[in-house]
């Protein structure tokens, strides 16, 4: 899993495809990083991602459950139309903000 920690904010750079196969490992790694660095904010960066199924929703919801206890937030950035559709359909947008970039 590619990630970056800045103070209490964790950015997770999601792979090209997010499915059950790679979600399990991502959950384990993310939880370890969250625990070690007292993470409060998580940014899911979808720049490289063109496929995601409901396993990805499980990754987001699970991490949110952990950090919402300390008033944390989850964000999505660089989500393409497909990913936005998946996020909206799952209802996860109720707990997660999608960051929209300004037109360059």
């Amino acid at each position: 899993m590619k990630y970056q920690v800045q103070e209490n904010c964790l950015t997770i750079y999601l792979p090209r495809e997010v499915d059950h196969h790679n979600a399990e490992e991502m959950k384990r790694e993310a939880d370890a990083v969250i625990d070690r660095n007292h993470i409060k904010y998580i940014i899911f960066d979808f720049e490289k991602t063109d496929f995601m199924d409901s396993s990805g929703i499980g990754v987001i919801m699970g991490r949110y459950k952990t950090i919402c206890l300390i008033g944390g937030e989850v964000w999505a950035v660089h989500a393409n139309a497909r990913i936005k559709k998946i996020l909206t359909l799952s209802g996860v947008t109720k707990i997660m903000q999608i960051y929209e970039e300004e037109e360059a």
Binding site: K27, D53, S54, S55, I57, G58, V59, M61, G62, L89, S90
Partner: peptide, 14 residues
Amino acid sequence: EQERSGMGFAFMEA
């Protein structure tokens, strides 16, 4: 406990 979202069939139907 495995954080399955419970959305599998809902996605298939959607």
